[in-house]
Design a protein around this nucleic acid. Structure first.
Lengths: 184, 184, 184, 184
DNA sequence: AATGAATGAGACTTCATTCAT
DNA sequence: GATGAATGAAGTCTCATTCAT
């Protein structure tokens, strides 16, 4: 079962959901098409289980990023985002792809709004602790910014240099002295 | 031909490219499937022509936003983004969807990187005129931010209040006195 | 109308009947698809008229080959066959192709058996005059031989050297002294 | 799979390649259209496998015709040709049809020239053993003759009497005393 | 638990033909 | 005589899914 989900994950992340056939997944996993239907009731069900699995894994990672110092937590989160971009960009690509199939897959809608709430609140809380004013809007902006960087990196991979942007963000949001300013 | 492109635009923007069949498009346009192939050599060709059309239309709109005052230009652009979100969110959804099919549609790759270059340079230039330091990175951030807001609004439509965010951004980037600051 | 038949002839002879579309023929002829249907009631009708035209043209050629000396007539016919192979092999290809569509095109059946009768009788008559024994069977053999050479040349074009064969046949059938023998 | 190839063979041999649809073949074979694509990757692939199968079968038959006496071998071959004409004329029809699709089907080109070489050489060898002069050209002539008889019989079936021709050829090529002569 | 042969709906596409202008 | 927009039937092929073994 894990074998199947891994294969599916690899192929779907790389090629997209509709471009990946059940037959391909079965072949990549080294099992028969029939067996696949013993574990998953449909292609969509496979996608669902696969994504929810990846999400709970991501939550584990998130947990490990929390630090006593809110600035540190924030920096950890930002650095983790860039690490994921560098090392697992196809998975980010997949999540984005699914995001735009929200009308076809109900589970995506629920997952997306739940997690958005969660993360926004978490960041807002950090901002409050750090003492940034209007933390609600700033949190929404940071969340959007992260998504946007994900989009642009996935798409422009070859051309999009990420290292500068990482330092820029860390400086802007997590350093005590020069922070909170966009400009002089 | 316009009838067909309109129908295609409506359906594909709403339901997605693969989820929309040629038969549906023909039915929605009130023509036969065959006729469609008099104008477009394939489903992909239809998509391509449709998107490129929308792009050149978007360029026209962009042209009208330019003002002598760079702050004003920026504000116009931001407000236009939000107007599009409110009024034509499916088209933004479509552009995002295509973005993640970049490996299947060559024209998307070219279009995406061309436009990214263009917009980044334009914003960078505005920032320079306004006097914002590190305009290169700030421009990339603003571009990512816009994409991110697009993503999140498309997905979270019901829950995502946009009005506050619009004012927040305008204040942050385009107002003379309190600008350039993320904080106090 | 002649323009259309010429275009059709060129394309169908080269690419085959089903592989050539009405649209292509119209384009090659420089007329509209609609006009084509003013002259020919269907694609098949076009084929029919085109082939019958070519046949009557071929009959004219045949007429010019007849000589007082039957040996000379025979030589002329053989040399004409090889000339056609060299210069208009696609038309021979087309005739062969049609031959095997005999069940789909009634006019082919009629044409084929009529002409077969005609030619066989003609050759038989020549053989009788020359004094070859069993002229009926020899005539059928020569006819088959000519068809067979047509088939093999069309197919093996690059590899099939025709010049030797021509001389060989002329020697065998049309020369007074060494003729009538397959061997010493 | 054999069921499918048999059905395809029957229909395509009888009606022609393009005139036979996948749906018909599936119906005749008593299976679904889909299953057909489990075994053959395309209609052309089906044709290819079917023809190559028939060819290797034909080679087996050929092997059994060889005799110590070259005259006997030749007679066996000629009689086999006529037996095939009488009993499986549609298959000969199919081979001829394909022959004229040589530009569309690469495998036909290869097959045709390979087999031509093979048979020519074989007959030439027999002729040499029998002591017929100019065996190279005579071999090419006999090969063309056989093809030609195939063509004419397929087309003129009802009208074309084959029995006389068979005896005539056997007498001409395989009998010791009166052979090698076209005439007195 | 595991297979893979079999299905059938539905997708894209082609093309001969018609018809209003 | 001439056009070409429009049609619709038919074709090839794909693929998620089922089921007997």
């Amino acid at each position: 079962m894990q074998k199947i989900m891994d294969a599916a994950s690899r192929l779907i992340a790389q090629k997209g959901y509709e471009a990946t056939s059940i037959a391909e997944i079965a072949r990549e996993a080294g099992v028969s098409k029939g067996l696949l239907y013993n574990y998953f009731s449909s292609k969509q069900d496979l996608l669902e289980k696969m994504v929810l699995g990846a999400m709970s894994e991501a939550d584990n990672v998130m947990g490990r990023l929390i630090d006593d110092d809110p600035r540190r937590t924030l920096e950890n989160m930002i650095r983790e985002l860039f690490r994921q971009l560098r090392e697992r960009s196809e998975h980010i690509r997949l999540m984005m792809e699914l995001t735009f199939k929200i009308d076809r897959f109900d589970f995506v809608r629920k997952m997306a709004s739940d997690r958005y709430e969660l993360y926004i609140r978490f960041i807002e809380d950090l901002f409050q602790k750090i003492g940034i004013p209007d933390p609600a809007n700033e949190a929404r902006m940071l969340a959007a910014l992260c998504d946007g960087i994900g989009v642009q990196y996935t798409v422009l991979k070859g051309v999009y240099s990420i290292d500068q942007l990482e330092e820029f963000l860390v400086n802007k949001y997590c350093k005590k002295d020069q922070s909170h300013e966009m400009g002089h």
